[in-house]
Structures are given as structure tokens and as C-alpha cells.
């Protein structure tokens, strides 16, 4: 490890309860920059890690609003200015006829914003992440549970944090290269 920067310390657990307990303990201990990895969702883990309140709903709202206004304007412009056609003697700006497409574009833009926004806010795509430098981390998508405390955390100290994680009955605590 000589010469390489330390990204953090990773502790391995074999039950979801142990991980949840460790995450809560780390939070109580004062750690803030840490993350938990599990093959499936664990009730209460997001709160224990201190998951930030997501800005996604705001993005989705504006995505939907854009689709709504854009969809309506597109039809209004085409029917009133771009290519006015007399349909059944109705006025050019017959708004009731525009509603279905306005509605559908609202849903489409909101849905696309949700998916793309979710991926972007998650920091994806991420071609490189130091966590994968630990060979056993591949088990995070199988049947093992990991807690990674980053070296950037103000409370982080290689020796103390190592001892803290070992005291939580971690199966193994390994150093993560940056």
C-alpha cells in the first residue's frame, strides 16, 4: 500500500441486521461520509446512512411542466400559425382537442426526467469507483453486506476507525485504495 492514497476503510458483515446496526453506530459515533452496500433494500438503512433529501421531485415537476407547456404550444403553433386548417368548422385554437397530447407529453417528459434525473443524481455512469479495489466487494451483489467509511470524513483516523469497525463485529476490515 506504500505510496498509494487511502480512500477509506471497508468493513464486511454477513447479515443485514449487522450492517444496519453498524451504520447506526457509525452515525452516532459522528461519522458522516460513509456508505452502505447491500444486495437488497434494507428498511431503515437509508435513514441510518443519512440519505440526503432528494431533489428529484423538483426536477420531475419542471420536466412535467415543460412537457405540458411545450406540448400545448406545439399544437397551438401548428394549428393556428404554422398550418391553419379548417376542421369541422371549429376555431383554429380549439383547446379541447389539444388536451390528450398535452397530457401525454406531460407524462412522457416527467417520466424521462425521472429516469435520467435519477441516474444523474446517483452520479452514474461512474467508470471507476475505489470500492471495487477490494476483491471481496463483488459479494455485495450476492450475499454480503459492506460499510465503507471514507478517509475524507473529518473524524476519520486510520487506526481509530479500524478499531471502531472491528468492535462492531465486522468479519473483516480492509483498506480501500483510492
Amino acid at each position: 500500500m506504500a505510496g498509494r492514497r487511502l480512500y477509506g476503510l471497508m468493513a464486511e458483515f454477513d447479515t443485514p441486521e449487522a450492517l444496519l446496526y453498524a451504520a447506526r453506530a457509525a452515525r452516532e459515533e459522528g461519522y458522516r461520509k460513509f456508505d452502505a452496500y447491500s444486495p437488497f433494500g434494507i428498511e431503515g438503512l437509508a435513514e441510518a446512512v443519512g440519505f440526503p433529501k432528494t431533489r428529484l421531485p423538483v426536477l420531475v415537476f419542471f420536466g412535467g411542466l415543460f412537457g405540458c407547456c411545450g406540448g400545448f404550444f406545439m399544437q397551438w403553433w401548428a394549428n393556428v400559425i404554422g398550418y391553419p386548417l379548417n376542421i369541422g368548422g371549429k376555431p383554429y385554437d380549439s383547446w379541447p382537442a389539444f388536451i390528450p397530447i398535452t397530457f401525454e407529453l406531460t407524462i412522457l417528459c416527467a417520466a424521462l426526467t425521472t429516469v435520467i434525473g435519477m441516474i444523474a443524481l446517483n452520479g452514474l455512469p461512474a467508470p471507476y469507483h475505489p470500492a471495487f479495489n477490494v476483491p471481496r466487494f463483488a459479494l455485495a451483489s450476492r450475499d454480503h453486506f459492506f460499510l465503507l467509511i471514507e478517509a475524507e470524513d473529518p473524524k476519520f483516523d486510520p487506526k481509530e476507525t479500524q478499531e471502531f469497525l472491528e468492535a462492531l463485529h465486522a468479519q473483516e476490515v480492509s483498506e480501500v485504495e483510492a
Partner: peptide
């Protein structure tokens, strides 16, 4: 409403 309005 839309159907009846369009049919007129």
C-alpha cells in the same frame, strides 16, 4: 366532454 365536443 371531448367526444361530445368533437362530434358536435
Amino acid at each position: 366532454f371531448l367526444i361530445i365536443w368533437a362530434g358536435n
